[in-house]
Amino acid sequence: MLSDHVLFIDGEAIVIDKPAGLPVDRPRDGSLSLENHLAGLTFGFHRWPVAVHRLDRDTSGCLLLARNAKAHKRFAQTFEAGLVEKHYLAVVEGVPEAESGVIDLALSKISSREAGWRMIPAKKGKAAVTRWTRLAERGGRALIRFVPETGRTHQLRVHAASGLGMPIVGDPVYGKGGSAMLLHASHIRLPRDPKPPVEASAPLPERFRLAGFDA
């Protein structure tokens, strides 16, 4: 039950540690999604909470839900203004020589009948910027902290694969796939003056520990 995954809660917001494999939006095949768990996240309110942003199905970690319509509107505006700080942890296939850097690589969406849709680097695409820091390395792989300054679809996955030249381990679209994707939303901070910020951190999942990383 997702009620056991709550990291932060007050009268306006809930932050949950979303498990990998659970989609935020309802899949076309009708399988379970976040919506199937919202009734268990009311905590005394009549209305179900609503997700303010998205995480990919195979990405775990901090997901912000708004507990009323006014809060949802304010939180969405804060996201659009670029004021929300989000940290992600990922294991990539390779070890960058530099300890840190910035990836500035615009992205565009393409689609084909054979391969479906995906994001690609494109000069005329939408601006996408990510800061990164190498935290650890093991067995020819590195644990990276990604801090996106923009919020494009699949931004970190494409920036890892095409910006660093090192796809995220387990990425089924931009990498080799074959195992659980090692991408985790580890921290979120949303300012809401004059109230204290919405802030939460999600512990590193077991799949990272099994890969040898214990950040």
Rank of each mutant, 00 (worst) to 15 (best):
K70Y: 05
W117K: 13
R192C: 04
P27S: 11
A128V: 02
L55P: 08
P23D: 05
R26K: 14
M166L: 12
G178N: 02
G212D: 08
H53T: 09
L204Q: 00
L34E: 11
G125M: 01
P197F: 03
A122S: 15
F213N: 02
W48R: 15
L164C: 02
V50L: 07
G170P: 07
P23Q: 06
G170M: 05
F79L: 14
T78F: 06
R157G: 04
V24E: 04
H187N: 07
Y88W: 00
P27D: 13
A81C: 07
L156W: 07
P203E: 11
L7W: 10
P194Q: 06
P27F: 00
D171K: 00
T150G: 02
S100L: 00
R145Q: 14
S60G: 11
M119R: 09
K124W: 12
K126H: 14
D214Y: 09
V6K: 03
P191I: 10
L38S: 09
P121L: 12
G30E: 13
S31E: 14
H5P: 05
A142D: 01
A142V: 01
L22Q: 03
G140L: 08
I14K: 07
H187R: 15
V169T: 10
K109M: 03
L38M: 10
A180R: 08
L32E: 15
D171F: 06
A200K: 09
R47S: 14
A115K: 10
R118H: 03
D10P: 08
L105H: 02
I168E: 02
R54A: 10
S100Q: 14
D171P: 01
P96L: 02
L22A: 00
L22P: 08
L89I: 06
H87G: 09
V50D: 01
E12F: 11
L89E: 00
T130R: 00
I9E: 15
L38E: 06
G11R: 15
L41K: 05
L34I: 11
T150M: 01
D56A: 00
T153L: 09
I120M: 10
V102R: 15
R145W: 07
V95Q: 04
P27W: 02
E149V: 05
H87A: 13
V129A: 08
